[in-house]
Design a protein around this nucleic acid. Structure first.
Length: 558
DNA sequence: AGCATTAAACATT
DNA sequence: AATGTTTAATGCT
């Protein structure tokens, strides 16, 4: 069944005896989403299992294997049967096949599997499937029990290596998605919790909040740990790869078990994010209002994740030190990811898969080199970081914590239910837009948002706004961004800029917003349930905390 | 010493 | 029962 999603395309890759995973990434050409191209020759290894050499002997799932057998088995069994794989001559210098299936390690195989997926993510089961389908050696081992040795190994590898990250998949109670960590697990394995001494790896910080699950669980009792409602961004539309099934709502939460690189905020962030496990209220946020603008949106967090990471990677060079900046930028970017991407995708969707991939790729490669199209924005934001924007960002930070998208949905929900307060509405409006626009054109957007918000205060205006916002932002992004958006110039489209006082205004605006929010929270949300958000904690959080904090206050009515 | 494969003991869902 | 995490033994480089 899953066949559909699985991508046969992968098969070729896998089959391909030699293809270093790394070569591709940079060229970004390889991952063809669909096999169509290669269609025919899909399997070089036509012969079915029956004959597979090894099969006979090793047929049983159990595998003979005892310890050292690996090699032996490979030699014995593999030799004949594997057919396709055995290519590298024995022993020659380095490329000899180390395992029965070839020279690739489980990790490599898994990576390939994931990469081959249109969305760059797969569930464990899908990975198994891919293996069975793509790697000759496992072909006949597919039906074996889940406890087949190789499956165990796959699982083991997934958990062990930092290059793989697990993303919560709320779809149908399915297992999580596994994707690869853009930052890459590099060579590092997962950071094993704090274990003995954390000294050396100080930077690496074993962040992983999950730390001791069982222990923690036992010890940390009360904390209802508010989680944030996952937001699910509606899946992404255009994606030709329309997911095979389930996942209509994959809100997913990211949790890099290990943030390999110290450089990123992800470090600071991850822990928290990680902990956000959360929420079950799935149904609650289905697209609802959020999609108002676009029923379809982005490709899930997946992309987001990638994007973010990419960002992180690229930005470090310049603003590695300033946590705040970093944070803000990341946030800004984060949200934006979709509008931006969506558009681009829709518009130039020649290869969805790649679109996803591209951004990251680019950022990775040329931190400050050349960019094109969409990336510009990122670059802009990152490199530019004009004072104003900075300010605004900073201010915003506290407010749109991890909200990313979830807040929105929630907000909307609330709004719908009880839109009694004009304030609220304005806030809501703002919020959403602010995020999007913010990132999109930074100042410009903000200005416009401001304008809009200021004016309308009633429901009517609201709706209008809502609708128009997205559009604007989009435009801004596409057209406005590219051109030189000088910090000082901020020009909204309408030319209403005149009235905007600038920073000051923004400032004020922000303040207001904050107040409102507070108010709202206190009033509306609070009584709802025991929500807890702590905004004030770090008044001047100069460092990471800000970020974490932000993500921390997740408010969720559970 | 570091990495990879296996196996297996838990823990979660 | 499927998933995930960890720890450990063992073999290769």
């Amino acid at each position: 069944m899953a066949e559909a999603s699985g991508s046969p395309s992968a098969a070729e890759a896998a089959l391909d005896p030699e293809f270093p995973p790394q070569s591709r990434p940079r060229s970004c050409t390889w991952p063809l989403p669909r096999p169509e191209l290669a269609g025919p020759p899909a399997d070089p290894d036509p012969e079915p299992g029956g004959g597979i050499g090894p099969g006979s002997g090793l047929g049983s799932p159990e595998e003979p294997g005892s310890g050292g057998v690996t090699t032996a088995a490979a030699a014995a069994a593999g030799g004949p049967g594997s057919g396709g794989t055995r290519k590298s001559g024995g022993g020659s210098g380095g490329g000899a096949r180390r395992n029965a299936w070839g020279s690739q390690s489980y990790a490599d195989l898994i990576s390939q599997a994931i990469e081959s997926a249109p969305d760059k993510r797969l569930t464990l089961a899908q990975i198994y499937e891919w293996m069975v389908r793509s790697v000759p050696y496992f072909r006949d081992k597919g039906d074996s029990n889940s406890s087949a040795g190789w499956k165990n190994s796959i699982r083991h590898n997934l958990s062990l290596h930092s290059k793989f990250i697990k993303v919560h998949n709320e779809a149908t109670g399915k297992s999580s998605w596994w994707m690869l960590n853009p930052e890459g697990g590099k060579s590092g394995k997962a950071p094993r919790r704090r274990a003995a001494s954390m000294d050396n790896s100080s930077k690496l910080a074993k962040v992983r909040g999950k730390a001791s699950k069982k222990k923690a669980a036992l010890q940390v009792p009360p904390e209802p740990s508010a989680e944030s409602p996952g937001t699910q961004y509606p899946k992404w539309p255009g994606s030709p790869s329309a997911r095979s099934s389930e996942d209509s709502d994959v809100w997913t939460s990211i949790r890099p078990r290990t943030s390999s690189n110290a450089s990123t905020i992800s470090l600071g962030l991850s822990p928290i994010l990680t902990e956000q496990d959360d929420l079950p209220d799935d149904e609650l946020l289905p697209s609802l209002g959020y999609s108002s603008a676009s029923s379809n949106v982005p490709p899930t967090v997946t992309e987001e994740l990638e994007l973010i990471d990419g960002l992180n990677l690229m930005s470090p060079s310049s603003s590695l030190l300033s946590a705040q900046q970093h944070t803000s930028s990341s946030m800004a970017q984060r949200t934006p990811s979709f509008p931006l991407r969506t558009q681009s995708t829709a518009t130039q969707a020649p290869s969805f898969g790649s679109s996803l991939f591209n951004p990251v790729d680019i950022s990775l490669h040329s931190p400050g080199g050349h960019f094109s199209g969409p990336q510009t924005l990122e670059a802009l934001l990152t490199s530019n970081s004009p004072p104003p924007s900075d300010v605004m960002m900073t201010q915003v930070d506290p407010i749109l914590p991890q909200s990313g998208g979830r807040l929105n949905s929630q907000t909307f929900l609330l709004l719908g239910d009880q839109s009694s307060k004009s304030k609220m509405s304005s806030v809501n409006l703002l919020r959403k837009p602010s995020e999007q626009q913010l990132d999109s054109v930074g100042t410009t957007a903000l200005a416009s948002a401001l304008t809009m918000v200021t004016a309308p205060q009633n429901a009517g205006g609201l709706s209008t706004l809502k609708t128009s916002n997205p559009v604007q932002s989009t435009q801004g992004v596409q057209q406005g961004a590219l051109p030189p958006v000088s910090p000082a110039t901020l020009t909204p489209f309408g030319g209403s800029q005149d009235r905007l006082p600038n920073d000051l205004d923004v400032d004020m605006y922000m303040e207001n917003l904050e107040c409102d929010v507070d108010y709202i929270i206190n009033t509306d949300l609070m009584d709802g349930e025991g929500l807890d958000f702590n905004f004030e904690p770090i008044p001047s959080a100069p460092t990471y905390p800000s970020t974490s904090q932000a993500s921390n206050h997740t408010w969720v009515p559970s």
